[in-house]
Each structure stands twice: as structure tokens, then as C-alpha cells.
């Protein structure tokens, strides 16, 4: 066998060695704001990075089993859609823009939210729910996606996020 010391070998340094850890706070409950956190979490897990997602306030929509499959995209008041508010405020427009966005996402072969959570959970991602939000919305673990590991307090969150890169979305 030929010596391989001259062969370039990709550096698959374990994140354990670099100590990299990522915490993503998902605080929004609209379809368009659910995806950034999930896409980044999935990418981080694929890189071997310890990844936690903390769902708070409207972010509960993403893990509430009653709503997770039915998030909406509201175009009204969003200048990036370049559509007049007078039109986007008409009845049925949210359903229409949500349908369009879902199709765009599906065309890219990106999973819907529940399946995306399955993927993240299977990849070893940690999912947490915010205690205060749960109390406000009168939700318990039984109402949440099964992969959520627990409903935790702000103090617990401080402990788990120690030394982590943190993203607030």
C-alpha cells in the first residue's frame, strides 16, 4: 500500500475537541421565521456541533402539536414581499401567501416543520421549551412535540447555554 502521508485528508475535527456548542432561541411563530432556526440547527448537527433549541413565546407554535403543522406566513406589513398592504390585507391573503411559501419550500425538498423536528431530534439535537411561555399559554409537555426534552426555566437556560454561541431568532 502506498504511503498516504502525501494524500490530502479532510479535517473532520470533532466539535468535542473544539468545544463548539450552539444554542438557538426560536421566539417567532410564523412559517417564515420557523425555518431559519431549524435549518441552522440541522446544519450544526451535521457538523457534529452540540446543538440546543430553546422555544419561547410565539416559538411555541413550532412545537405545539396542535399548531406545528399549520404555521402561517403573513405578507401584510412585510415590505420585502413588495406587495401593497391594501391587497395583502384582503380576506384569504394569508392563506394564499402561506400556500405559496409552502410550495416554494416543498419544491426545494425542505421538510415540513414536524418532519424537520424529527430530523433534528434524530440527529441528536436537544429541544427545550420555556417555562414562562408554557405557564402563560397553559401548556404542558403533553401538548408539545414528543422530542422536547423538558420545559425549563430561564435559570436552567442560563446553565445549558454556558459557553455556547447563541442565536436569537
Amino acid at each position: 500500500m502506498t504511503a498516504t502521508d502525501t494524500v490530502p485528508v479532510p479535517s473532520f475535527d470533532d466539535a468535542d475537541e473544539t468545544g463548539r456548542k450552539l444554542v438557538i432561541i426560536c421566539s417567532k411563530g410564523s412559517l417564515d421565521m420557523a425555518y431559519p432556526g431549524l435549518v441552522l440547527a440541522n446544519a450544526a448537527l451535521g457538523e457534529g456541533i452540540e446543538t440546543h433549541i430553546f422555544f419561547t413565546f410565539w416559538g411555541f407554535e413550532i412545537i405545539n402539536t396542535k399548531t406545528m403543522g399549520d404555521l402561517k406566513f403573513v405578507a401584510m406589513g412585510n415590505p420585502a414581499t413588495h406587495m401593497p398592504n391594501a391587497v395583502m390585507g384582503l380576506p384569504g391573503m394569508t392563506a394564499l401567501s402561506t400556500k405559496m411559501m409552502r410550495k416554494q419550500i416543498a419544491d426545494l425538498d425542505i421538510p415540513e416543520i414536524p418532519e424537520f423536528l424529527d430530523l433534528i431530534h434524530a440527529s441528536g439535537g436537544h429541544l427545550w421549551a420555556c417555562r414562562m411561555s408554557a405557564d402563560m399559554m397553559k401548556l404542558t409537555e403533553d401538548d408539545l412535540y414528543e422530542g422536547v426534552e423538558g420545559i425549563i426555566s430561564a435559570t436552567d437556560f442560563m446553565e445549558l447555554s454556558e459557553g455556547a454561541q447563541t442565536l436569537f431568532i
Binding site: 473532520f12 470533532d14 466539535a15 451535521g46 457538523e47 457534529g48 425538498d109 430530523l119 434524530a122 440527529s123
Partner: peptide, 24 residues
């Protein structure tokens, strides 16, 4: 990895086991 699972039938969790840390 998603395609490996949905089309190939290789569960993501298993791929993380076979190719640790950075399966894709």
C-alpha cells in the same frame, strides 16, 4: 442526509452511528 433517509431508507440516527459526528 434527509434524502438518504427519505429515498434511501437509511435512518438519520443510524447514519450518525455509522459515520460519527459529520455523517454527510
Amino acid at each position: 442526509l434527509r434524502r438518504m433517509q427519505t429515498v434511501g431508507g437509511f435512518p438519520t440516527k443510524e447514519l450518525f452511528g455509522l459515520f460519527p459526528k459529520k455523517p454527510a
